[in-house]
Simulated assay, not measured.
Amino acid sequence: MQYEPTLPADDDMDVAPGGVRTVLGDLAPEDLGICDAHDHLFFRSPRLPGEELVDVSAARAELAAFRSLGGGSVVQWTPYGLGRQAAHLPGLSRETGVRIVAATGLHQAVHYDEATLDGLRGRLADVFVTELTEGIGGSGVRAGLIKVAGGFHALDAHARWTMTAAAEAHHATGAPIAVHLELGTAALDVLDLLCGTLEVAPHRVILGHLNRFPDLMTQRQAASYGCHLAFDGPSRAHHAMDWRLPDALRALADAGFGDRLLLGGDTTTAAARSVDGGPGMPYLLRRLRPRLEAAVGADLMTRILTVNPGRAYGAEWA
């Protein structure tokens, strides 16, 4: 007998938000199509020397490969200072037909030099607001989300600084906040800070990498806040993600949280791109989607890939 998840009725969900801010302008949430809810077209960090995502032609090929499998949109979580190449994103979107959402925000401190961080002291929230409302680095390409990061099982001073700035920018603009959870940990600490102390509405928060710490109790507690849960990136040797993912999605759907779930590829290195022999963006649709459909049902997978991203990234922009 095929598994039938418990799906929330449409009238039990939050009211659908406003537009998703893509690099070509604001878009109705229902027009995203099949969405890779967390990935990277461009990424450059001193932590990954020699693995930079900087090649525009490779980014174009990756988007085309994703599009050929039915992909409609990609949310790039690359934040400030890590090689977003925002000026190239509109052209790539037009050429491939894939809608792209860009990010502002700030990653963990280890991704930056001290001069960069010192230059942002006292003005971080203003930088986020400017990139959300006017454009990134003079490109005119507006960001559609704020990406920040937690630490391993805790939040250090840098994480608290960036999340405080993100909350300030959210309150000024309505932008959603996406959070890198280090190895999937500290989800509840993040929510206590953002949704408790800083008063960000939970449905405006997306938690990433929950599959890297496959604790079903923590995942359910996080979902109960009302935030969105992103399961992103194919398994690595020490993550054991893919084989536990069906159980996690099934448990969360049965608990009534099927409208909170997102999937993404999180391609962060050149070797991980499909055009360079890795899984890349196509893996989400080529391998992961049919496997999950067999485990949790086609209806839930359709919601996860098409309906939920619009709800997570749509905003009533101020």
Rank of each mutant, 00 (worst) to 15 (best):
Y3P: 00
L7W: 07
P8W: 06
D10N: 05
D11N: 14
M13H: 00
D14I: 02
V15K: 08
P17F: 08
G18W: 10
G19D: 15
G19N: 13
T22P: 12
V23P: 00
V23C: 11
L24N: 14
P29A: 03
C35N: 02
D36G: 06
A37D: 11
H38P: 04
H40M: 09
F43A: 02
L48W: 14
G50K: 06
V56G: 07
S57R: 13
A58N: 04
A61L: 13
A65D: 11
R67Q: 14
R67G: 11
R67S: 14
S68P: 00
L69N: 04
L69K: 05
G70D: 09
G70F: 11
G72H: 09
V74G: 12
V75L: 13
Q76N: 14
Y80S: 10
R84P: 00
Q85N: 14
A86Y: 05
A87M: 10
L92A: 07
L92Q: 06
R94A: 15
G97S: 06
V98E: 03
A103Y: 02
A103S: 15
T104M: 05
T104W: 01
A109T: 01
A109L: 01
D118Y: 00
G119R: 07
L120M: 14
R121K: 14
R121Q: 15
R121L: 12
G122C: 10
D126T: 12
V129R: 12
L132V: 04
G138S: 11
L145G: 03
K147D: 04
A149V: 13
G150W: 11
A154I: 00
H158R: 09
W161P: 00
T162V: 08
M163T: 07
M163F: 05
H170K: 05
G174M: 07
P176R: 01
E182W: 01
G184K: 01
T185K: 15
A186E: 10
A187V: 06
V190W: 01
L194R: 05
L194Q: 08
L198E: 06
H203T: 11
I206P: 00
L207V: 04
G208I: 02
R212C: 08
S224I: 02
G233M: 11
G233K: 07
S235L: 08
A240R: 09
A240M: 11
M241V: 10
W243I: 12
A251D: 12
A255L: 09
F257P: 00
G264I: 09
D266S: 12
A270Y: 00
A271K: 14
A272E: 15
R273D: 06
V275F: 04
V275P: 02
L284W: 08
L288G: 00
L288A: 13
R289P: 06
P290F: 01
L300A: 15
G310F: 08
R311N: 05
E316L: 09
